[in-house]
Design a protein around this nucleic acid. Structure first.
Lengths: 180, 180
DNA sequence: CCTTGTTGTTATCGACTGATAACTAGCGTC
DNA sequence: GACGCTAGTTATCAGTCGATAACAACAAGG
């Protein structure tokens, strides 16, 4: 029983991590703030007070996820600035299925103006970053992003990750990916 | 004022079309049955009676969308059985932004077991169909699907379609797609 | 030790939303 | 032209969920 008292910043961090899991599992509209609160081990009203609004919490979560993706790419490019290297980094992010899927849920929730704007901005930033880090041609970068979206969608469908739902087409598809 | 009385089948069809629009805009959890009802010009309880449940309506909507996509692919392959031909067909589907985005919302709602199962089944079927219709290699088919997912995600972000939100990276990305 | 600021909770509201029940009305048919 | 079937409605419930308000507990400083 960690009844420890944390600073608001520390607690926000924990809530944010819980939010990644919860939003990753059920999306923006499908997730209740109470669920996040229980995951974080605090009360639901406190979650609201820390972030003001469910929407703002989702935005913070999205930004957090994108930061993680970008920094993973940067680290990878630091070792070897190729698309293959960044691809490996993305795959290594996969075990945390939720992380990537949160982004997908952001895309899906784009009808909310604030979310749409944020998500467009961050996606564009990732796209640009990949190009700058690797020096690949626009066509190569686009293909990289396309593959990433396919993988993300598959993660959402739970056919990749730690204990995936076995699926004939999924294994076949993943096999043909290494070669592409 | 079309106060015409329709058969349950005909009315269901209208509701289904409304559901494509509504679910396409706001996703599964984010769409209220009342919204669909208003779009279809009937009362909310009647929508429920026609489909039993919001979930079942969403499943019907998803299946409808997938049917449309598959038949578009079949027609395209009928003219010319190449990936490029199917790609054109997909692009021609784009104006109905909702159509493709519904599928994305299905992926996003995969945490609901029934939706997940349906969506996996239909995605696998599309994947298989594309391969059979074109005779392309697994790698080529996978790349085709990846591109499709990228386009779908962009449609969700509203940077493609009839009056897209202008976006630097989006135009750049779309330009590099024709060449890929 | 008492005051003050910050962390956190409980209680509760108010709006929403999917679903049910009960009723109404059009249309064919015998 | 009453009967019966199907299309469709209004009224309403029961549960949910985000948000607010008021209070409680803990820590630090003077």
């Amino acid at each position: 029983m960690t009844k420890t008292r944390l600073t608001a910043a520390e607690r926000s961090e924990e809530v944010l991590q819980a939010a990644v899991v919860a939003f990753g599992a059920n999306g923006y509209a499908g997730t209740k703030t109470d669920e996040i609160a229980r995951l974080a081990g605090v009360s639901q009203p406190y979650v609201i007070r820390l972030f003001g609004t469910k929407q703002q919490l989702f935005l913070a979560t999205t930004n957090r996820v994108c930061d993680k993706i970008e920094s993973a790419f940067r680290r990878a490019a630091d070792r070897e600035p190729t698309l293959a290297s960044l691809g490996d980094a993305y795959n290594e992010l996969m075990p945390e299925r939720e992380l990537l899927v949160v982004l997908l849920h952001g895309f899906a929730a784009s009808s909310d103006p604030a979310i749409g704007e944020t998500v467009r901005e961050r996606f564009g930033r990732i796209h640009k970053t990949v190009g700058e880090l690797t020096g690949a041609t626009p066509e190569e970068v686009t293909r990289f992003m396309a593959t990433g979206m396919l993988l993300t969608v598959m993660a959402a469908m739970q056919v990749t990750g730690e204990n995936p739902i076995s699926c004939e087409w999924a294994t076949e598809l993943l096999g043909s990916l290494s070669g592409g």
